[in-house]
């Protein structure tokens, strides 16, 4: 395939300059695209921002009939579901990474790791369908029923587990998201573990430490930085996830203290309402939500990248 592109004309410095220019233009296109995305979101959101002012970000109203729009409901659902996802996925992915790089026999490690990586290849919409039709019914009959009987009465955390066991809702969205960010977290943590010098392990085992002691007291503390970076990166992924969340979050424009209640996220609101939007103000408000999402993910991802780069340099 590559052979066909080889130009057989005599080499000339002219061709060199032309090729370099085309390549540079292609690379600069990325900058133009990022700028374009930001500008188009700001321009699209402008009418809504002008109409509602700063209240757009703080209002929990979302009513297409009275044309009142605020981002708070969606923002709340986005952040809480992502935080749940990261909190659930972190210990599991540390477990997997430790198993693959420290405990498991070498020739088993690769096929298992490929399996985990394939989890990242499964499209978002498949997670959504599976979450809604398989996981949610099972979850409502199992954990939600149990939690309703045993956890809902507890002080402090009880409120988080109240409400009917519907299956869909904020917690379900967080759990499905956790499955989705598992591969990226695992691969970053595994990579960090593999950069540690073997001397560290040999020294610790040499003084008679068990595997648990070596891993928990020596290895994991040594990669605290990269783990934190990976965590922020996974958070950024979770914030922007669309289709899976649209299926399982329940699509309710409300804020509830219970994690079992349906909620919504920024991406899910856009996906559900954009094509059905009736007025220009609703379209503009939806693009405004997009702008909020863009800013959050940009900041979170920027921080993650800087953290990961810094720990890679050390």
């Amino acid at each position: 395939m590559m052979k066909a592109t080889i130009v057989t004309a005599p080499t000339s410095t002219n061709g060199d300059a032309v090729f370099q220019r085309i390549c540079r233009a292609s690379a600069f296109l990325i900058g133009i695209l990022m700028l374009g995305i930001m500008l188009s979101l700001i321009m699209g959101a402008w009418p809504a921002l002008q109409h509602f002012g700063f209240e757009f970000f703080t209002s929990a109203q979302w009513n297409p009939v009275t044309e009142e729009f605020g981002a708070l409901n969606a923002l709340y659902g986005t952040i809480i579901s992502s935080v749940i996802a990261v909190a659930l996925a972190l210990p599991i992915s540390i477990g997997i990474a430790v198993f693959l790089s420290e405990l498991c026999p070498q020739n088993w490690s690769r096929p298992i790791y490929i399996g985990i990586e394939l989890l990242a290849a499964v499209p978002s919409i498949i997670y959504g369908m599976w979450g809604l039709f398989v996981f949610a019914p099972w979850f409502s009959q199992g954990f939600q029923l149990w939690a309703g009987q045993h956890l809902a009465g507890l002080p402090l955390i009880g409120g988080m587990f109240q409400g009917p066991p519907m299956g869909v809702g904020l917690l379900t969205a967080g759990i499905i998201l956790a499955f989705m960010i598992l591969p990226i977290l695992t691969s970053l943590i595994k990579e960090a573990l593999s950069t540690l010098p073997n001397v560290l392990r040999e020294a610790s085992y040499g003084i008679g430490a068990t595997q648990f002691e070596v891993i928990v007291h020596v290895l994991l503390p040594a990669i605290k930085g990269p783990i934190f970076g990976a965590l922020i990166l996974a958070l950024g992924r979770a914030l922007g996830e669309t289709m899976a969340i649209t299926f399982v979050i329940g699509g309710a424009q409300s804020i509830s203290s219970s994690l079992f209640m349906p909620a919504t996220s920024i991406a899910a609101t856009i996906a559900e309402q954009f094509n059905e939007a009736t007025g220009a103000l609703q379209i503009s408000s939806l693009i405004g939500l997009g702008l909020v999402l863009f800013m959050i993910t940009f900041i979170v991802m920027g921080v993650a990248r800087i953290l990961l780069r810094r720990s890679a340099q050390q």
Partner: peptide, 27 residues
Amino acid sequence: TADLIRFLNGMLMSAPSILIGLFVYEM
């Protein structure tokens, strides 16, 4: 310049895909 483009490329790679949809819708 290359560093900046690398950074922006990483950002574009992790930008929520629904926002790409909004961008192309408007453009």
